[in-house]
Amino acid sequence: MSPLTLFLQADLVVKAVMIGLLLASIWTWGIIFTHSARLSRRRAAARKTAKAFWQTKDVDAFLKDHAGDKSSTASVLRASVDEYHRSTRNGVADAAAARDRIAIAADDAIADESEKMSDRLNILATVGSVAPFVGLFGTVWGIMRSFTAIAGANNTSLAVVAPGIAEALFATAIGLFAAIPAVIAYNRLTHRLDQYEAELTRFSDRLQGALSRKLERA
């Protein structure tokens, strides 16, 4: 009654369910590791750029020196400063409108980063919600097969019933094995992504405050 034996003795449909769930589990763990590492790198790079920026006195010089910086903070900074230069190229006719345009540019940059970082998180949510039902389908199918075996053998002894039921329950176990890590990882990564967005939003707010003061002097 080892897991391998249960798989080999299972019905073709139950085997297909088990294989599908195992592949989903492998895919889930791949997403968890790669996405977690990527998010950690992006947050670290964003913090590093933000720390360096608040220590500079010349924004344009900073952007020139960090032209190759691909961090999210640099993206928000470039979008905001570019909009500032466009809005002040011919003087400031409407400071409030200029502030709104700068805010929109920064929000767009943050939204782009959030969209990129949330990619494939929906897969975790899908596996977490669907895998238990797929496993349950395998269980139902296996139990139906067990009842058929009972009817065919005209014997209700445990030796006849147990193998099919064990196979069926094993399918449910694999479904839970795939679903539980996916749900936990989805909630954890979503929380970390929210924190990341909050950090970018705080940087954007401070930057807009600095650019707003420059608009008043323009």
Results as ranks from 00 to 15, higher is better:
207 L>Q: 08
150 I>Q: 01
88 T>Q: 03
89 R>V: 11
150 I>V: 14
45 A>V: 01
43 R>N: 15
36 S>K: 08
153 A>R: 14
103 A>K: 08
56 T>Q: 14
202 R>C: 00
58 D>G: 03
78 R>E: 04
105 A>R: 02
157 S>F: 01
203 F>W: 00
172 T>H: 01
207 L>W: 11
72 S>H: 06
196 Y>P: 09
148 T>A: 10
131 A>F: 06
185 A>G: 08
145 R>D: 14
71 S>P: 05
184 I>V: 15
190 T>A: 12
38 R>F: 06
147 F>Y: 08
86 R>E: 10
127 V>G: 13
85 H>E: 13
91 G>C: 11
197 E>L: 12
102 I>F: 00
206 R>A: 10
177 F>G: 15
124 L>F: 06
105 A>Q: 11
40 S>T: 08
127 V>C: 06
147 F>R: 13
43 R>P: 00
146 S>I: 02
214 K>L: 15
108 D>M: 03
216 E>M: 13
107 D>C: 05
113 E>G: 10
91 G>D: 07
15 K>D: 06
131 A>Q: 05
187 N>P: 06
90 N>Q: 07
133 F>R: 07
173 A>H: 01
13 V>P: 05
163 P>D: 10
106 A>F: 01
128 G>N: 14
76 V>N: 03
88 T>Y: 09
188 R>L: 11
40 S>G: 14
173 A>L: 03
126 T>Y: 00
21 L>V: 05
10 A>I: 00
135 G>V: 04
189 L>G: 07
168 A>I: 03
40 S>K: 14
168 A>V: 09
83 E>C: 03
91 G>N: 07
161 V>C: 00
162 A>W: 05
127 V>K: 11
14 V>F: 11
176 L>I: 11
89 R>T: 01
72 S>E: 05
178 A>N: 06
81 V>L: 13
185 A>R: 12
12 L>H: 13
20 G>P: 09
115 E>P: 00
109 A>D: 02
31 I>C: 01
144 M>Y: 14
15 K>F: 09
177 F>W: 08
199 E>R: 10
45 A>S: 04
89 R>W: 01
61 A>T: 13
31 I>S: 04
